[in-house]
Design a protein around this nucleic acid. Sequence first.
RNA 1: CGGGGUGUAGCGCAGCUUGGUAGCGCGUCUCGUUCGGGACGAGAAGGUCGGAGGUUCAAAUCCUCUCACCCCGACCA
Length: 608
Amino acid sequence: MSTQTASNSPITNRRRGTIQRWSRTLIPTLREAPAEAVNPSHRLMLRAGCIRQVGAGVYEFLPLGMRVLQKVSQIVREEMDAAGSAEMLMPAIVPLELYADTKRDVEYGDLLFRLTDRHGRGAALGPTHEETVTEMAKGSVSSYKQLPLNVYQIQTKFRDEFRPRAGLLRGREFLMKDAYSFHLSVEGEGGLNETYDRMYQAYVNVFTRCGLDFTVVEAEAGPIGGSASHEFMVNADTGEDTIMVCPATGYAANVEKCEIGERTWSFDKSAPAELTKKHTPGMPGIDLVAEHLGVKPEQMLKTIVFQKVGGEKRKYVLATVRGDHDVNEGKVRDTFGFPVEIADEKEAKEAGFAIGYVSPKMVERRDDTLLVIDPDATAGTWATGADEKDHHVTGFSWSRDLDAELPEQGKQSGRIRVGDIRNAVTGDPSPRNASAKLEAKRGIEVGHIFKLGTKYADAFKFIILDEKQKKQTVIMGCYGIGVSRTVASSVEMSHDDSGIVWPIPIAPYHVIITVMDPDKDEHAKVAADLSEKLADEGVDVIIDDRKERPGVKFKDADLIGIPVRITIGDKALADESVEFKLRTDDGKGRLVEIAHVVQETLSKLSNA
RNA sequence: CGGGGUGUAGCGCAGCUUGGUAGCGCGUCUCGUUCGGGACGAGAAGGUCGGAGGUUCAAAUCCUCUCACCCCGACCA
């Protein structure tokens, strides 16, 4: 064992590496993964002894997993500090009174873990901390001279997800970095935009340093408008999110937000087929009906009933897209400029909508109803609902069968409009380059930056005087990174049949020294000497000193994914050498003279 | 919250239909032989069969209730 202390100097950041012995830490690797683990990251992190499940969506980090979590946290910390954010720590327990003004406890609903203390006072385990930090800032920032301000914390967050899944990817308890900034202006020096751009760059730095393959996408716009929100997505086929990418321009957006390039449209006047009513019992869904009628989903119209949010009288918005497309609520909202939500089924039925069998013709029967049609759902004849339970029609033509004024290109103002209201799909024209086509990819959201504006400052009446002695509501931004999710995403992105392949910057150890025979003094001595020298250079080393057969150690080394493996055995030692192998190399590695191993390791760790 | 499924040793599973002393593989411990990609032999430890109630001479097995976990969907600042 080393007698040296962990750090060489109290004032430099030069960090001495860690030396750990496998036999003296806890890395319970498994040959078989628990049956419930389906995702690669979940399976492999369990098998590699990184984590263990304690309850639904609740995991403990064992020493190996903890080291990765710490490495990611440290990178986040360094980049946040460098970008001018100051670390702090807020409580996990948030008194319910803090939500009194924002009503987010209601908004969150069951997602909030609630608790009651012995005095009957209500509190929540913080799912995020906008309220807490706004209250904190309001109480301690009283002058414009203290702004801009940017603070962050790395802390466990709690969300009682309906359905936790995929191990660390969607847990009910997870480690998150959340930052909050405060400003008096959006533009200019010290403004929100400046900090937002710095956070954007800091996030790019963080995920690049973590060795992740990621895409920054535009996300649902914030209240201030413009490109007010970005998500950082790790590229992985197993991701839950769909992102759309334009290969020509680099434009990338979450499918929920992705624009679609210009599409031509017209209301075809030809009507080759007659309008015929068909009995389609118990078939509200597109697929069933299409099969029953013998048409393809893309020959059908899908009409979704939305209702205006707020307002005294119910106002309905019909959104019609082609049967194989999905309506995008945000785009429907933007068409008429007021927020909408899917209509309450019971209420809509009472109002006369045959939910499941609705056709666009409902717009001509009701004055309180608007209609928006996707360009791809215009020309041609269609199968659609008959506005009557268990019935559909075929041969529907807009120009022949709708007794209402249809919009024309470039001239839209009435109750019926044509516009982009659906989710983009692969092959759609890019919004930035008419001749390029969008491609869909899968991603895992690991970071999200957001311009909040005055939402929280308004709620908390966080107002301070500017230098002209004018009252200004403070403008805020918030910036999140899912730290534990980042760890899991890395495994999703980087693994093979043998196990995890950690990127060097977040690997729990940089080097594993596999000692073939720990009982042999020579083996043990070379391992000890090498590890000390590597640690002096800042390299983290684990010595596999277990009395196991070589095959077991090799398999485990691959499973836990350490980037560099140094094997100490008789054959190599006879040549004053050890075997040197990268996790990504095949075979048993090549001989490197002991005198050159440190050099070789450093060079591989810094170049790879 | 809707649909489907599973709870038996640390992990993976069989046994349940047809009630009758709780089993297999891996792992763990001991001894021996082995020792460069998850060795072999012999022996051992380890389970109130998720929990509660019921039926029965007898329940892992049948019945009722309950809890937990997983998967699909809906949901996800």
